[in-house]
């Protein structure tokens, strides 16, 4: 399936959960926030939220700022 991930069209295998995807990308789940189609996915739902073809997903974290 195709996801638009942080603005990039990216190909992934089907039936991935948010948790699976973060694991694939080696991203620490505790330090990010995840949005799918403009809806925030709570950390407690990472394991059960299954991504679908065409989902627009944003993964954000904290960076330097004033």
């Amino acid at each position: 399936m195709k996801l638009i991930l942080n603005g990039n069209e990216t190909e992934f295998s089907d039936d991935l959960t948010v948790a699976d995807l973060l694991k694939n990308l080696e991203i620490e789940p505790l330090r990010v926030a995840v949005e799918v189609n403009l809806n925030i996915i709570k950390k407690c739902d990472f394991e059960r939220h299954v991504l679908k073809h065409g989902d627009v997903m944003e993964i954000v974290n904290f960076v330097g700022g004033g």
């Binding site: 942080n6 990039n8 993964i59 974290n61």
Partner: peptide, 19 residues
């Protein structure tokens, strides 16, 4: 300390992080 919210580096999940 103040921080900004920006896209995570999805190509290198292990890259150094402010935290």
């Amino acid at each position: 300390v103040t921080v900004a919210v920006r896209r995570t580096n999805i190509f290198d999940g292990k890259s150094e992080n402010l935290l």
